[in-house]
Amino acid sequence: MTFKAIINGKTLKGETTTEAVDAATAEKVFKQYFNDNGLDGEWTYDDATKTFTVTE
């Protein structure tokens, strides 16, 4: 399945996608990506659209 992340950061904005077997796996991938890029913020997840949003 394809999962999307919308990034609303102070220094980084945009979208990225990942292929994962479930939402928990996708969340781990996205959180690692955000940690690697120095992002920290509020997380939400919309199961209907398979979209994570992080707002810094």
Rank of each mutant, 00 (worst) to 15 (best):
Y33M: 10
Y33G: 01
F3H: 03
A24D: 07
T53C: 06
T16I: 15
D22Q: 01
T51L: 03
K31V: 07
T11Q: 11
D47V: 07
Q32T: 09
T2Q: 11
A26Y: 00
F3K: 01
A20P: 01
T11H: 12
V54W: 15
N35C: 13
T18K: 03
K10W: 13
E42K: 10
T25Y: 05
T16V: 15
M1R: 08
A26E: 01
I7S: 05
E15V: 10
T55S: 08
M1C: 12
I6Y: 08
T55E: 09
T16R: 13
K10G: 10
D40G: 10
G41K: 05
E27L: 15
N37L: 15
V29S: 05
K10D: 07
K4M: 07
I7Y: 15
T2M: 11
V21E: 09
I6Q: 05
A20N: 03
W43Q: 01
F52S: 01
G38V: 06
F3G: 02
F30V: 02
D36C: 10
A26G: 00
T51C: 03
E15Q: 10
Q32D: 06
L12E: 11
M1F: 14
A48W: 06
Y33T: 04
F52T: 01
L12G: 10
T17M: 07
G38K: 06
N35Q: 14
T49N: 07
T49C: 04
Y33V: 05
M1W: 14
K4D: 04
T49A: 06
N37H: 14
A5M: 15
T2C: 14
A5H: 02
T18A: 07
I6G: 01
E19Y: 14
K13I: 09
T44N: 08
G41R: 06
F52Q: 00
L12F: 15
A48K: 09
D22W: 00
F52G: 00
F30A: 00
G9F: 15
I7F: 15
M1V: 12
K28I: 10
F3S: 01
T16F: 15
D46A: 02
D40H: 13
E15H: 09
T17D: 04
V29D: 04
F3R: 00
D47R: 05
A26W: 02
N8D: 09
I6T: 06
T17S: 10
V29F: 15
T51I: 04
T11D: 10
T16L: 15
E15P: 06
W43E: 01
D46G: 00
V29N: 08
V21T: 11
E42H: 10
V21N: 09
N35V: 11
K10Y: 10
V21C: 10
E56M: 13
K13N: 09
T18L: 13
V29L: 11
L12S: 11
F34P: 01
A5L: 15
K13G: 05
A48H: 09
G38F: 10
K50H: 12
T44M: 07
A20H: 02
T51Y: 01
Y45W: 02
T18N: 02
N37C: 15
W43N: 00
Y45L: 02
V21R: 09
F52L: 00
A48M: 11
E27P: 01
G14Y: 15
L12D: 09
V29Y: 15
L39D: 03
G9N: 06
A20W: 02
T11L: 10
T53V: 09
T55P: 02
T53W: 11
K4A: 05
Y45F: 05
G41V: 11
L39M: 11
K28L: 10
Y33I: 06
K13V: 09
V21K: 13
E42A: 09
A24W: 09
K4S: 05
E27A: 09
F52K: 00
A20C: 07
Q32N: 08
F34E: 00
E27I: 12
K50W: 05
D22M: 00
F52M: 01
T51E: 02
T2G: 03
T11S: 10
T51F: 01
I7W: 15
T44P: 01
K10V: 14
A26F: 00
Y45T: 00
E56W: 11
D36T: 07
V21I: 12
V21G: 06
D46Y: 03
T55N: 08
K31L: 07
N8K: 13
G41L: 14
A48I: 10
W43Y: 06
F34S: 04
T17V: 10
D47Y: 06
D22L: 02
T55Y: 13
E56R: 03
K4Y: 14
N8Y: 13
Q32C: 06
M1A: 08
D47L: 05
V54P: 02
G9P: 03
N8P: 05
A20L: 03
N35P: 03
T11I: 11
G41M: 14
A48D: 12
E27K: 08
D40L: 14
A24E: 10
K28E: 08
K4G: 04
D40T: 13
V21W: 10
F52E: 00
K13F: 12
A23E: 04
Y33P: 01
K10C: 14
T18C: 14
K28W: 08
T44L: 08
T17F: 12
V29I: 14
F3A: 02
T53A: 03
T18Q: 04
I6M: 05
Y45C: 00
V54E: 02
L39C: 07
A20G: 02
T55G: 04
G14K: 11
T51H: 01
K13Q: 11
L12C: 15
T53H: 11
K31I: 07
D22T: 04
E15S: 09
A26D: 03
D22H: 02
D36Q: 13
N37E: 09
N37Q: 14
D46C: 08
T25M: 11
E27G: 06
K10R: 11
E15L: 08
D40W: 14
N8G: 04
N35H: 14
K28G: 08
D36G: 07
E19L: 14
K4I: 13
A5K: 02
T25E: 12
Y33K: 05
T2H: 07
D22R: 01
D40C: 12
A48T: 10
D40S: 13
F30R: 00
A48Y: 09
I6S: 03
F34T: 11
N37Y: 15
K4R: 12
K4P: 03
Y45A: 00
T17Y: 14
N35L: 14
D47M: 04
F3T: 01
G14F: 15
W43I: 07
A5Y: 06
G38S: 06
A5N: 02
V21F: 12
V21Q: 12
Q32F: 05
D40M: 12
V54K: 02
F3D: 03
T11F: 13
D22V: 01
A24F: 09
N37P: 03
E15M: 11
A23M: 09
L12W: 15
G41W: 15
T49S: 10
E15W: 14
L39N: 06
I6C: 08
D40P: 05
T2L: 12
G9R: 05
T16H: 14
N8S: 06
K10M: 10
F34M: 13
F3E: 03
T49L: 05
A48G: 11
A20Q: 06
K28F: 07
A23R: 12
T55I: 10
T18W: 12
A26V: 00
T55H: 08
A23Y: 10
F3N: 02
E42G: 06
Y33W: 14
T25V: 06
T55L: 07
N8H: 10
T16E: 05
D22A: 01
K13Y: 13
G41H: 09
T25D: 07
A5E: 03
N35T: 13
F34Y: 09
T2S: 07
D36E: 13
Q32R: 10
F30W: 02
V29R: 05
T17I: 09
D40Y: 15
K13A: 08
E56S: 08
K50S: 04
A23V: 08
D22S: 06
Y33F: 11
N8M: 11
K4Q: 06
A26K: 00
D22G: 03
N8L: 13
